[in-house]
Design a protein around this nucleic acid. Sequence first.
DNA 1: CGTTAGCACTCACCCAGCCAGAGTGCTAAC
DNA 2: GTTAGCACTCTGGCTGGGTGAGTGCTAACG
Lengths: 353, 353
Amino acid sequence: MARRVRTTGSLDPRAQSILRAVIEEYVATATPVGSAALVERYRLGVSSATVRNILADLETAGLLTHPHTSAGRIPTDAGYRFFVESISEAAVLAPVEQLMIRHQFGQVQHASEQWFRLAATILAGANRMAAIATPAKPRAAHVRRIDLVTISARLASLIIVFREGALRQVLINLSEPAEQEDLTRAAVILDGLMAGRTAVDAERALTRIDGIGPIASLVQRVGERVVAAVREYDATLIEEVFSDGLLHVMEAPEFVRSDKLRRVFAALEDRAYLGQLFDSIEGTGRVQAFIGTENGPEEMRDVSLVLASYGEPGTAVGVVGVLGPTRMAYQQAIGTVRFVSSLMNELVANIHA
Amino acid sequence: MARRVRTTGSLDPRAQSILRAVIEEYVATATPVGSAALVERYRLGVSSATVRNILADLETAGLLTHPHTSAGRIPTDAGYRFFVESISEAAVLAPVEQLMIRHQFGQVQHASEQWFRLAATILAGANRMAAIATPAKPRAAHVRRIDLVTISARLASLIIVFREGALRQVLINLSEPAEQEDLTRAAVILDGLMAGRTAVDAERALTRIDGIGPIASLVQRVGERVVAAVREYDATLIEEVFSDGLLHVMEAPEFVRSDKLRRVFAALEDRAYLGQLFDSIEGTGRVQAFIGTENGPEEMRDVSLVLASYGEPGTAVGVVGVLGPTRMAYQQAIGTVRFVSSLMNELVANIHA
DNA sequence: CGTTAGCACTCACCCAGCCAGAGTGCTAAC
DNA sequence: GTTAGCACTCTGGCTGGGTGAGTGCTAACG
C-alpha cells in the first residue's frame, strides 16, 4: 500500500500506462471505468486486483477520483494535466489529415478575411468539438490604401485597406455635392499622405494639408474620418470571435440536459475574460491547454480549452483553438490546433510580406 | 355545453378576453393556468366555475389544451395564431422604444455592413429572445467600384465594391511582378469597363479589351477574377445569418435541461430550410409569425419565429426577426420586428439612391 | 514482496407504491 | 346563464427495498 507511485512528476511506467488507459476509456465512454473493464479491454497482463491497487495509488496521488464508493475511476483535472504534459510534445497530426486541412485552406486561399473562420470550422469538424478563432489583428494598424466611392450626390463610401489585411467601409455625408472625379482626386491625395502610416502618423500627416477650396476641405474632412476609423480599429482589442461546432459540445453527455453549457457560452461573451486569456497565450508560440479548474471563471470549470496564437508577434496576432468537456481527446486536439495555427502562420506571413 | 363560442374565426368577446388572459398568464409564468388563477388576477367579474365552462369551450374550439386532467390550460398553436391575428395590426412599438432603437442605429450609422448585426442585437435585447438577421443581398449584384492594391511584387489584393453595399477582397497571384502604378492603371480600366454592371454584363465587357502587352493581360486576368467573384456572390443565396441572444432562449424553462434547443440550432444551420423560409416572407412587406407546428421541420415545432424582410424587392433584400419558444410575447415581438425592419428599409434606401 | 483470488461491503440507480395538491367536470340550485 | 359544491383524476415528490457494479481488504500463492 505504501507504494510510492509518484516521485515528483514522474510515474512508475505501469501506473502511467494505466492512467492513460483510464483516460482513453473515459474519454470514449463518458462513464467511470472499473478495474475489470481495464484488464478486459487493454492487455495489461495483470489481474483486476492488481489494477485496483494501482488505481488506488493513482487516486492518492490525486490523478484519479471516485464519484462514489461503488463506481469506477474518473480522471481528475490533475490527471488530465499529467497526461497532457506527457503527450503534448508528441501530438503531431497524421500526414493524411494535414493534407486534408491544407486542401481545405487551398479552396478559399484568395479570401483572406475568411481564413480564421475556416480555421474554426476545420478545428470543429476534425475534433467534433466547439472551436473558436479570431482574425489576426495588429496593435497599431497601418493604412495600405484609401479609396472613395460616390453613392449619391451627398453620400460617399470611404474604404480603408489595412496592411494587416482588414478592410473598413465608412459612409460619409458630404457637406456639399461632389462628383466621383473630386472624390478620386481627394482619395489619391489622402492615399499619398497616409499610406503606410499608423493612426498617429496619419493624423500628423493631416496637418500638412494646405491650400483652400473644395478639394482641400474634402480631403481634410475625409482624412479625419480615416484617422478616427484607424483609431477605432486599434482600440478594438478583439475584433471578432468566431465560433463553430457549438452543437458538438451540446451533444456531449455531460452537457445534454444540463444548463452548465449555457453559462460557458455566457462566459465566452465576456470580452474582458477572453482578452486576458488570449494575452496569456500570445507570443508563447506553443499550444496551451486550460483544463477544467485551471480556468479562472467558475463557469468554465467543466470545460477545457486548447488554444494557440498565430501571426507575427510584432505585427498582427490572432488565436485559434478548441473548446470541449474536460473529458476531451487532448492528443487529437493539441495536434490539430498546433497544425492549424502553424498553417495560419504561413498564410499570414505571405500577406504581410 | 353546446354553446357556440366560435363562429368561423370570430369569438364571443368574453371568451376572447379569457383567451388573451390565459395567453398573457402562460407567457409570463410558463405554467398551465387554472380557472382560479384567472379570476384572481384578472378582474373578469365572473366565478371560477363560469371561467371553467368557457375554458372548456375554448378547448373544444381547439384554442386551448390540457397537459393532463388535473392541470390548468395552455394555449395551442392555433390559440396563439388566433391571438396573433387579433393583435398584429395593432402591435406598434411605443415611441420611447422607437427612439431608443433609432438612437442605437445612429451610433453606427456610418458602418453599413454592421446594420444587420445591430438589428439582431437590438431585437434580441428588446425581446430577451434570440434574433436573426441577414444582410440585404441582391439577386444580381452590380459592381460599383474596382480597386487593386499591391501587397508584394507578385501578390495583389482585388477589392470589389458592390452597389448594394457589400465588399469583397480577393487575393491575386500575379504571373509577373507589377508595381502599384500598373495595378492602378489596370484598376481604372476595369472600373471603367465594369462599373454599374452585373456579372453577365461585366463578362461581356471583358471581351472588348484589346491591345496586347503586360497591362492588357493583367486587365484580362483580373477581370476574370472580378466576374468570378460577382458570380460567386450572386450564387450565395444567403450570405450570412447573424444571430444573437441565443442565451436568452436557452434560459427559457421549456428548454433548460432539455435538448430540444440543440435540434433547433441544428435546423437553423440548414441553409436550404432557411432559404425557403425567407422566400416565403420576401416581398410581402409584412411581419409574419411562424408558430410551433406551423414550422415545417420537426425540430422547429417547439419554437416560433417572427420575421420580416427589409430592403427593396427589385434590388436587395434581407431578413430580420426573432426566435423564441411558442410561449412568446407576440405583441412585443411583432412590434419590434416591424419597427426594426422599417428602419432598415430607410437605411438601405439611402445607400441605394 | 508483489500478485492474485475471494469476499464482504457500499452506494447509485431503478421501480413500485403512496400521499398531497391542484384543478377539473358535473350536478343541482340560484 | 351563473354559481357553489363535490367527487374525481392525475402529476410530482417522497419513500423504501432490490439489484448490480465495483470497490477495499485479507489471506494465500509463487
